[in-house]
Structures are given as C-alpha cells and as structure tokens.
C-alpha cells in the first residue's frame, strides 16, 4: 500500500485553498501510518472543527469529525472503550489550544495512547483569519488589525509540561523529518503530539508579508532551528535569531500511559 490508498477518493478534491500546507501534513501522516502497517479497520481518525480538522473526512477509515475543540475528549472515549483501535487526531491551533485547551492538557496528563497532528497555521483559517492563541506578537489578522498584542502559546512546551510521552515540532517544509516524526509518535505508547507549522496563504501569509506561498515556505526553511542548536545558543548565552522556529524531537519518554493496546 501507499499513503494514497488511505484517501477516500470520492471526496477529493479537498476544500483547501491553493498553496495550503494541510495537504502536505495529511500526506506525511498517512505515509507514516502506511509505513508502520496499521490496518484500516483498526484505525480511527478523530478531529475537531477547522480547515485542519476536515482532514478526517478525506480518509477511507472510521472517522469522527466532532465539535470545535473537543476532538481529544471524543478520542478519549473511543480509545478507552476500545484500546485495540489506533487513534490519530487531526486538529488546528485554535481547535487544540483555544477552545480545546483544557482537553489538550488533560489528554496529555492522562497520557492517553493516541497521536495528535496539529496543523499550526497561527490563525483561524476556516472562519476567515482571526487571531489564534499561536498568532505571533505583532502579526496581523482580522481581529488583530493593529498587530497581535498577546503572547502566543508554545504548543510543544505545553504538551511536554502537561505530561505527553512524545512531542515534536516540524514544518510543512520538512516533509521527510515530519513523516519520520509522525511514525515515531505512532510507535510511542502514550500521548504523542506532532506540531506542524503550516502556511495559510489565504488568511495568514497574505496579511503578513508573505506575498507568495513560496515566501512562507522559504521563511520556514531558513528560520527553522534544530532544538540542539537552539539549546547550545542558549547555553552559551548567544542571541537567538529573530523569528527562529525551533524544530525537532522535544520529548520521547515512557511515563505510564492510558488506553494502551492490550497485548495480543
């Protein structure tokens, strides 16, 4: 099989705008699932509401497209009721960290055995580009017309602090690394969170000096900094370049987890 066999072909094309990063993230996720050899009838995709959360509807497997912010609470029920099912949750920055913030930290705390792929476009894409809890300070959105005044969340750090077993951050530019990281998340028992910085040309890029889709991808490529390098700079007291996107695997541990598949 290849990742393409997982698509619900009669639902294509997707609703995504030209240049959207979500398709890349879905491809990488499905490639990783295909690599680990999960069976379609044992895999459930759960999502909330948003462009990113529409992903579950394009996959030919059992899928639950729920309410805004609540995907992890629904997924908790699915997994605890049947631990033999593999669960992947697709979500966005607003879905996961604003309205769903409480479910997010508690799912991490429970360390429930599922894999979250969060498409962080730093904006509310679906509703037309309002500010989200990850919108960088100063960025323009329809609800921050003078620049975002609030401090954004670091989703990966939040997941680590709340107890997740596997946490990483990549971007839609890092296709190979992202696929590998999703695979590691799938294979780690407990809560796995893969945060993916993705471009939203329609509602973020266009308002924030990324005239072309490629400009934002280029930005992610040139501003990405591996965690190791970031830590070294910090240690040496050297300045962190402005706009650095820290990427890499941040946590891989084996704290007690919930809902782990029963031994065959």
């Amino acid at each position: 099989m290849s990742y393409f066999d997982w698509f619900r072909e009669d639902r294509l094309p997707t609703i995504y705008c030209a240049g959207c990063g979500n398709g890349t993230v879905i491809n990488c996720t499905l490639s990783a699932i295909d690599e680990v050899g999960w069976k379609r009838e044992e895999t459930v995709f759960v999502s909330g509401i948003g462009c990113s959360s529409r992903a579950s509807g394009y996959i030919a497997a059992d899928s639950l497209h729920t309410t805004h912010g609540r995907a992890l609470a629904f997924a908790t029920g699915v997994k605890l009721a049947n631990p033999d099912l593999n669960i992947v949750v697709f979500t966005g920055d607003g879905d996961l960290a604003a309205i769903g913030g409480n479910h997010f930290i508690h799912a991490c705390r429970r360390n429930i055995d599922l894999t979250v792929v969060c498409m962080n476009n730093q904006i509310y894409g679906m509703t037309g580009g309002q500010g989200s809890p990850t919108t960088p300070r100063g960025a323009l959105s329809t609800t921050t017309p003078y620049g975002a005044a609030e401090q954004p969340f670091d989703l990966a750090e939040l997941a680590i602090a709340a107890g997740a077993n596997y946490v990483s951050r990549w971007t839609s530019y890092h296709v190979k690394e992202l696929t590998k990281s999703v695979r590691a998340g799938l294979e780690t028992p407990g809560f796995s969170m893969i945060e993916v910085m993705t471009q939203c040309p329609t509602n973020y890029g266009r308002r924030n000096k990324f005239k072309q889709v490629a400009d934002q991808i280029e930005y992610m490529k040139t501003h990405a900094m591996l965690r190791k390098k970031y830590d070294t700079l910090l240690e040496k007291g050297e300045p962190i370049p402005e706009g650095a996107i820290v990427i890499g695997e941040f946590a891989r541990r084996s704290r007690p987890a919930m809902g782990v598949r029963r031994a065959a």
Partner: peptide, 11 residues
C-alpha cells in the same frame, strides 16, 4: 468503529 465499515461521522 473497528468493524471495517470505514464510516465518516460528522456533525
């Protein structure tokens, strides 16, 4: 779920 139906459930 888990029975091979491959159902999509949406609100």
């Amino acid at each position: 779920f888990g029975k091979g139906y491959g159902v999509h459930v949406t609100g």
